[in-house]
Amino acid sequence: MAGLSLAGVTKSFGDFDAVKDVSIDVKDGEFLAVLGPSGCGKTTLLRLVAGFEKLTAGEIRIGSDSVSSGEFNVPPEKRRVGIVFQNYALWPHMTVAENIGYSLKVAKVDRAEAKKRIDDALALVNLQGLGERRPANLSGGQRQRVALARCLVAAPSLVLFDEPLANLDVHLRAAMEDEFAAFHERTGTTIVYITHDQAEAMALADRIAVMDKGRLAQLATPRELYSEPANAMVASFIAQGMVLPAKVLTSEDSGHCRVEALGQEVVVRCRPGERPRDNAQICVRASDLVAAEAGEQGVDGSVKRAVYKGGAARIEFVPAAWPDVALHFEQREPNPFEAGSAARLRIASGWLIPAESAA
């Protein structure tokens, strides 16, 4: 297997930069998810790594080999990159084994060697004994595993996943997440996983690259993305975070600051070295907002909507003094809040978005 290095990668279509100055180093054996909203550049990035698109600027290296730059482009078939597509792309007239072994047939691999590699690939994806079936006789999850086996049989140095679970139902997605995690643990394959689904990325990846308008917004572990977003885009995109205007009053210690937000003073987490400043922003999660007890300071407002979630409700709240601000929090049963009722919320915690990103 091999790692992947992107250095200043840019892809332009006329005056439009689909990908702009992206630099990422993926370690050998790492599982990297590339996450972002539609149109953020994640699929273009995958096509650049696969060799389907040519770079405008920058360089891509797979292992120690340079495969793409502004001057040259190694064709896809010579990159030893495996791809698992969203639509599986299985030939319906071929058996499972024939689908998996097609690349070996084209490469004129010895029949006995090809059979061994096909059997090994079937075993890796837990499809032993199904080699003679047709794709039409398989479940959606089994077809996805056939697509994965077809990718693996060619012994790629890097595997790319292009939204592989998008066509599956919710229950099957959860099962396939377990399959992918187990596969990665068994093989140690270097994986780049393109998705718009945050739950998938959080569950599977060692690190997540969040893309925004063609640029890399943040590269971090799932926990870091959730608890310490680098900018307002990441803060609001990940787990529906709420970005609130704030004023930094004091630096309490190396990891906490006192801020004023929505008329309330609150101690929030922050990076070391933060100083008092105006025009700051904080990120708060639903778990950071709680109903204020009698006599506690808080933010007065009204409940816009209460959505039952099974054992708890999502409460959507509008502060009276800031009607353009939308807040939400979770309330376990019994739920005293209903649409139109008055309430007072307290900001219990949050994260101060770093100064260089908070403008």
Rank of each mutant, 00 (worst) to 15 (best):
A2Q: 15
G3L: 13
L4S: 04
A7W: 01
D17A: 15
V19A: 11
D21K: 00
D21V: 07
V22P: 03
I24F: 03
K27D: 13
D28P: 06
G29W: 03
F31M: 09
L32V: 15
G39M: 08
G41D: 13
T44W: 05
T44C: 10
L45Y: 07
A57Y: 00
G58N: 02
I60Y: 01
I62G: 02
E71A: 12
F72I: 02
N73R: 01
K78L: 05
K78G: 01
K78I: 03
R79S: 00
R79G: 00
G82E: 03
V84A: 04
Q86G: 11
N87T: 08
Y88C: 04
W91D: 02
N99C: 08
I100L: 08
K105M: 11
K108V: 08
D110Q: 09
K116D: 15
D119G: 02
L122P: 08
A123L: 09
L127Y: 08
R134L: 14
P135K: 10
S139K: 09
G140E: 04
G141E: 09
Q142V: 11
R145K: 13
V146F: 12
A147H: 02
R150L: 04
R150D: 07
V153H: 10
A155D: 13
S157H: 13
V159E: 03
L160V: 14
P164L: 08
P164T: 07
A166G: 14
L172Q: 08
A174C: 03
A175N: 12
E177N: 15
E179K: 07
E179A: 04
G188Q: 08
T189V: 01
T190R: 06
Y193A: 02
Y193D: 02
D197R: 04
Q198D: 14
E200Y: 02
A201F: 09
M202V: 14
L204N: 00
L204W: 01
V210S: 09
V210Y: 04
G214D: 05
R215V: 09
L216M: 03
Q218T: 06
T221F: 04
T221S: 14
P222T: 10
P229W: 04
N231V: 05
A232I: 08
A235K: 01
S236H: 04
F237W: 05
I238R: 02
A239N: 13
Q240K: 13
G241M: 05
G241A: 11
G241H: 03
V243A: 11
V243W: 04
V248K: 03
L249E: 09
G255Q: 09
H256G: 10
V259C: 08
V259K: 00
E260K: 12
L262V: 05
L262C: 06
G263E: 10
E265M: 11
R271W: 01
R271F: 00
P272Y: 07
E274V: 13
E274A: 08
R277L: 11
D278C: 01
A280D: 02
A280S: 06
A280L: 04
Q281I: 00
R285A: 06
D288A: 03
A291D: 07
A292T: 13
E296N: 03
K304R: 14
G310T: 04
A312I: 06
R314P: 01
A320N: 05
W322P: 04
D324E: 15
A326I: 01
Q331H: 11
E333R: 13
E338G: 13
A339N: 09
G340R: 12
A343E: 11
I347S: 10
A348M: 10
S349K: 11
G350V: 06
L352S: 07
S357K: 12
A359L: 10
